[in-house]
Amino acid sequence: MSGQPERVAVVIEDDADIRNLLEAILAQAGFSCYTAADGVEGIAAVREYKPILTTLDISLPGIDGFEVARRIRAFSMSYIIMLSARDEEIDTLMGLDAGADDYLTKPFRPRELRARIEAMLRRYHQSPPTIEVSAARPAGGTAQASAPAPVVTEVEPEDDDSGWLTHNGLRINADMWLCDLDGAPLELTRSEFDLLLAIMQGQRRVISKDSLALELRGEYGSSGYVSDSDRRAVEVHMANLRRKLNDPVSKPRYIETVRGVGYRLAEPD
């Protein structure tokens, strides 16, 4: 995206000590920060202040964080980092499925939160990245982000010189942060947008889950460590993206899964 968005954040947290800590961390990172102690107040704050970042506790009075995330997603593309003392994988998956972009377990280290925030900001301040793609491997093989792979630079749209990438009626524009399907606007989360952009840039070349996980962390092109939970997060975001595209795995029109390897753009109609 061109230009840098204003650093506005909303903290939705009922614990006053943690709320103050988050506000201090975000202020140090250069954010104007607004806080809310419950879900209803938090939703109103997101609607009013239009933050690029929202931190969201799961265990809130009244409506819980999962429902808050779903309601925020109905009108906002704010990058949501969900915070919770729950460390079970199912809680992480439920948070991502509700619309969160990232999930951090309490107690968290301020340095780790700052690192995730800065990675998120790097994704929006830079031009569309080059995407590391993996050559196809037999089913059941493991694709590692550090494995040698060709690099594909941004693909120019075949029939459109205005910055749009197109495929089977699906269009995406990284500079304008817009996506539409058969002429109708498609509402995507930040992470879903980045994943779809990566797939469309890669075209028919396979992009590994590891490379996509690093892309979501703002570390594309690196050989950083990728955990099983990172790969699972990519799978959850991809499943949510497919639902919005009405794109079944068994007969994909947009995103094709290459078992044991990763994802690539489906064949054109």
Rank of each mutant, 00 (worst) to 15 (best):
R73S: 03
C33L: 07
T189N: 04
Y79V: 07
L96T: 06
S127L: 08
C33D: 00
A27L: 12
A24R: 10
L104I: 12
F66A: 02
Q28K: 14
P5R: 06
S134R: 14
A198I: 01
V261R: 14
M77V: 11
S127M: 05
I199S: 03
G183M: 07
D180Y: 14
W164S: 00
R116E: 04
S229T: 12
I58L: 14
I131L: 13
D87P: 03
R123T: 08
N173R: 02
E154I: 13
A198H: 00
D102T: 06
R123D: 09
G163Q: 03
G39L: 12
F75H: 15
K50W: 01
F193E: 01
K106A: 00
V68Y: 05
Q28M: 06
M77S: 13
M1G: 10
P51R: 11
R70M: 02
V155F: 11
M176P: 02
V206F: 01
V155S: 12
H237R: 01
P129L: 00
N246T: 12
P128I: 00
N240S: 08
L21P: 00
E156G: 05
Y34A: 04
Y225G: 00
L216G: 08
A44R: 13
Q203L: 04
D160E: 14
C179P: 02
V40L: 04
G218I: 00
V236N: 02
I199L: 13
G169R: 04
S250W: 09
L181I: 12
I72V: 15
L83I: 13
N173C: 05
L170Y: 10
D160L: 11
L241R: 04
P252A: 06
T54H: 06
R253Y: 05
E267R: 15
L22G: 02
R243W: 00
R122W: 08
Y34I: 09
L265F: 08
